[in-house]
Computed example of a mutant assay.
Amino acid sequence: MNGRTDQPLRLGVNIDHVATLRNARGGSDPDPARAARLAQQAGADGITLHLREDRRHILDADLSAVIDAVTLPINLEMAATQEMQRIALSHRPHAVCLVPERREERTTEGGLEVAGDDNRLREYITPLRDAGARVSLFIAPDEAQVEAAARVGAQVVELHVGAYAEHCAAGDDAARNAELRRLFAAAALADALGLEVHAGHGLNFDNVGPIAAIPEVVELNIGHFLIGEAVFIGLDAAIREMRRKMLLARM
């Protein structure tokens, strides 16, 4: 494989925080399945949702409803637990992205520790792949983690760009550029090892450009910002503007 900036760049829209809004009050509104349909109409390439162990936003019924609502590929983010494996094998989403998960965190903090957990993750991944799911690991842009992801049988890595996003927000150009170099190097290594490269976490209109320009990255997964921006300009407009900025950066 060799990364090229003329590769198509897909946008996966994470609808978790539509469910967060619904759960803040209870009831059925706003509906995550409706958000998934709107995202599809706006040109999203896939729908991402994270079924957490504590069910703080997406619920089991939402997963079924979203699968029924759209024809787009579904990317199920989940912890590497037996419960989640059973759910994934039952629902058979297009892709499964294994993420670290701690109950006290607000959002997914840091990447999955793949290195040192090779045997367990290899055994965990095998039945998911056998069922037809593309298995992705959400990891830090670290050489050891990328190499471990290839060893355990993942087909995809999603690079955690949260540190980059934080440095952008803080206006720390030196730290931002250093993190960008790490991301470019990790993406190149992953591509050389035969892994498809995705990226996500903390991306917005202002910081997406340099990540979209990484040649080996073929998919960005963006959620919180798009759902927040939808409050002001609507989900359709938010998705279309994000796609525009991604395309400009790629060109």
Rank of each mutant, 00 (worst) to 15 (best):
R92P: 01
T107C: 10
V66Y: 07
H57F: 02
R92H: 15
D60P: 07
V99F: 03
A69R: 02
P73K: 01
T71G: 15
P93V: 14
E77C: 08
M84I: 01
M84W: 11
L63P: 03
N75Y: 13
R56T: 12
M84C: 04
S64H: 14
P93R: 11
R86E: 11
H91K: 15
A69E: 06
R86N: 00
A61M: 04
I74P: 08
I87W: 15
E105W: 05
T108D: 08
S64Y: 13
P73Y: 13
Q82D: 07
D60M: 06
A88E: 07
D68K: 15
A65S: 13
M78L: 07
A69L: 05
R106K: 10
S90W: 14
M78A: 10
S64C: 03
L76C: 10
E105F: 01
A95S: 15
A88Y: 02
L72K: 04
V96I: 14
I67P: 09
E83L: 13
R56S: 10
V96K: 05
M84H: 13
R106M: 00
T81P: 05
A61V: 14
P100E: 02
E83V: 12
P93S: 09
M78R: 00
V99I: 04
V96S: 00
D60R: 14
I58C: 06
A65T: 02
I67V: 10
A80L: 07
L63H: 12
C97H: 01
L63Y: 06
I58V: 13
V70S: 07
V70Y: 08
T107D: 03
D62M: 10
A88K: 06
T107W: 04
P73T: 01
I58F: 12
L89R: 00
T108G: 06
M78Y: 12
R103C: 07
I87Y: 13
R86F: 01
L63R: 02
P93H: 10
L89H: 12
P100G: 01
C97S: 12
A80D: 05
I58E: 01
E83I: 11
T81F: 04
L59D: 02
L63D: 03
C97P: 00
S90Q: 15
L98K: 00
N75M: 14
I74R: 03
S64A: 14
V66F: 06
D62S: 10
A61N: 14
P93Y: 13
L89N: 02
A79H: 00
M84V: 04
I67L: 15
S64F: 14
T71F: 12
L76D: 06
R106S: 03
R92Q: 14
T71I: 10
R56W: 01
T108C: 01
P73R: 11
V70W: 05
R102L: 09
E77Y: 11
I74Q: 11
E104P: 04
C97N: 13
C97F: 03
V96C: 09
D60E: 15
P93A: 12
Q85Y: 05
M78W: 10
R102W: 05
